[in-house]
Write a protein that binds this DNA or RNA. Structure first.
Lengths: 193, 193
DNA sequence: AAATGGCGTTGACATTTGTCACGCTTTTTG
DNA sequence: CAAAAAGCGTGACAAATGTCAACGCCATTT
């Protein structure tokens, strides 16, 4: 499974074989069954986690008890709670596997050590953070400027792989609309084809 | 005006007097009159920009010609288009001064040099990016989980200084609701006091 | 002092979206 | 395999929000 990650990482930065060996030695593989949680609210997120197979979602409960999907993660994505990780404070979020999944993880200690030791890891980490920020900005624009239907179509188009991997009611919760509304949008849309 | 920035920066990281002198030498001050733009869509954002006085907004037009406020900036905030800056690509956003304002700016060249030369600047920049990401995540949660009224109240409470500095119709555009809806929320709310 | 224009408000009405209830199908689980 | 649960769709209705038009206020300009 590490091979998947190795290939992915080399697309971002150039890493020598020795460095890659260090990164590998510091990593662990973990398997999760369907619905298994990898983060419960209240816990501190202390790992760096790369998804090799399967699918996850990061979600949070609001005061009325409903849950809202902040983000999905599929193969070759990272999943984390940056806020909890950075400040070592109890998370307000949950992360769960939506299917049986495999991840590669590094403890915070080891990952920080890799960042300090291997420049490419530091650079890579920065690029990743920058991209995450840009993605968030685009999503905010979509949320404040688009109708439910537009948000749905944009999501489907921008993240087809995610779209095809997750239940529709979670897509609705990701878009900030009810599952019934999503269902009707789909009906209208297919009828128009 | 640089004193304002100096005080701000020292709250984040420890900087020697020599380093601060370098940061200062690389900076420029710029004044903007009300409604003046500092970024037009199509231009590339090539500076790092700290607001010492006044107020800005970052906004974008959607296909139907309406504008949507992505972010505000007031005193002691930064304002930028990270996506344009990072990839040196034409911006899809506009940034304008909402009042007469003063900013401290560094050219991209000089700022990158400072980041490489002075570790504290690099660290500071990373912290800033991390915070921006966390803030975005919180806003996304608010947008997908709150009603118009809840979004309004949360914004008012979380960013009172911004709230008191900008026109209401821009707050509406920031929250993704119409200005009429915002107006009615306010009426309902004051009546309840 | 009058004219102007931006800003916020309001009423009437249309549209969108949410809620509740239900049923059908697929998937999961024991 | 069978029972249970999850997933998805749909109708009827309610609530939230948007749209359009008009108005008043107030700061600024002329």
């Amino acid at each position: 499974m590490f091979d998947v990650f190795e290939k992915y990482l080399r697309q971002w930065v150039s890493v020598s074989d020795e460095e890659m060996a260090l990164i590998r030695a510091a990593s662990m593989e973990r398997k999760l069954r369907k619905w298994q949680s990898i983060l419960h609210e209240g816990e501190v997120w202390k790992i760096t986690c790369f998804i090799t197979t399967g699918c996850f979602r990061l979600y949070r409960f609001s005061a009325d008890g409903t849950d809202h999907t902040l983000r999905f993660g599929v193969e070759n994505w990272w999943i984390s709670d940056q806020e909890s990780y950075n400040h070592e404070k109890p998370s307000e979020y949950n992360i769960e596997a939506l299917t049986a999944s495999t991840v590669i993880i590094w403890t915070k200690e080891k990952w920080e050590e890799l960042r300090e030791t291997i420049p490419a890891v530091k650079i890579f980490n920065e690029k990743l953070l920058a991209r995450g920020y840009e993605t968030s900005q685009q999503r905010i624009f979509s949320l404040i400027s688009n109708s439910a239907e537009e948000k749905y179509l944009e999501f489907q188009k921008t993240y087809p792989k995610v779209f095809n991997s997750v239940p529709l009611h979670m897509v609705a919760s990701y878009l900030g609309i009810s599952r019934e509304t999503l269902s009707r949008i789909r009906k209208d849309f297919t009828r128009r084809d």
